[in-house]
Amino acid sequence: MKHLIAAALILGASTLALAQNPTADTAHKAHSEKSAKAKAKPSASRTEIKSTAKNMAAGVEAAEAALSPEELALADRVHTGRIPCELGAYVTVTADDKAPGYFNVVGKGFKYRMSPVASRTGALRLEDEKAGAVWIQIANKSMLMNQKLGQRLADECMSPEQAIVADSLRKNPAPSLLDAPATALAK
């Protein structure tokens, strides 16, 4: 749906641009009419064209910014704030006040504008499609990866909530999938 709206706005902009450019056959006639109109009153100006283009660009941005209810529900689960990571690094995740569901993820040497994406695994994912960056948040840690560069930018990042879960897992580790269930050992 977003792409359909964006395509319609782009088509409208190109039609407007073509309507503003006279062909070579009528260039002289248009020029003389334009100078006559300029003396009487200003016609469609560059300012109008620029304003129309800005409005269309705003429409495209609004179409891209629209998130589904499912994505907005995912956004409510994102941990925000200054999140410490391994090796003394940190990542700051802040909600974008102007666009609900979007987040700014900033750290040393990077800044991304991300939105939630549904995941099959249950992990919470934020993505910046243009930059190829992905923030993955699971129960006990988060990590930031740049898929285009093939690099992990931050790992072992833990919000206070994630630190509690990580501590709990250290004290009471989950059973391994390779271990036999206790009932099988009793036989």
Rank of each mutant, 00 (worst) to 15 (best):
M1K: 15
H3N: 13
I5N: 05
I5T: 13
A7H: 14
L11S: 07
L11G: 11
G12I: 05
A13C: 14
A13S: 13
S14Y: 05
L16A: 11
Q20F: 15
T23S: 14
T23G: 10
A24K: 11
A24L: 08
D25G: 06
D25R: 10
D25V: 07
T26L: 14
T26S: 10
A27T: 07
E33N: 08
E33H: 06
A36P: 00
K39F: 13
A40L: 10
K41S: 09
P42V: 05
R46C: 07
T47R: 08
E48P: 01
E48G: 07
I49Y: 13
K50S: 10
S51Q: 15
A53L: 15
K54C: 05
A58H: 08
A58D: 09
G59F: 03
V60P: 03
V60D: 00
V60W: 00
E61W: 14
A62R: 12
A63M: 05
L67G: 11
S68D: 13
P69C: 00
P69I: 02
E71G: 02
L72W: 11
L72Y: 06
A73T: 08
R77A: 11
R77E: 14
H79V: 07
T80L: 01
T80G: 01
G81Q: 04
G81S: 06
I83P: 00
I83S: 00
L87R: 07
L87T: 09
G88E: 06
V91A: 09
A95M: 01
A95D: 03
A95Q: 01
P100G: 08
Y102F: 15
Y102A: 04
G107Q: 05
G109R: 07
K111C: 08
R113Y: 15
M114S: 04
V117W: 13
G122V: 09
A123H: 12
A123D: 12
R125V: 05
K141S: 08
K141M: 10
L144C: 02
L144A: 03
Q147A: 07
K148T: 00
L149N: 09
Q151N: 03
L153I: 13
E161K: 12
A163R: 15
D167H: 10
D167R: 12
L169P: 00
A174I: 03
S176C: 02
L178A: 09
P181S: 10
A184T: 08
A184D: 15
A184P: 01
L185G: 06
K187W: 06
K187R: 11
K187L: 04
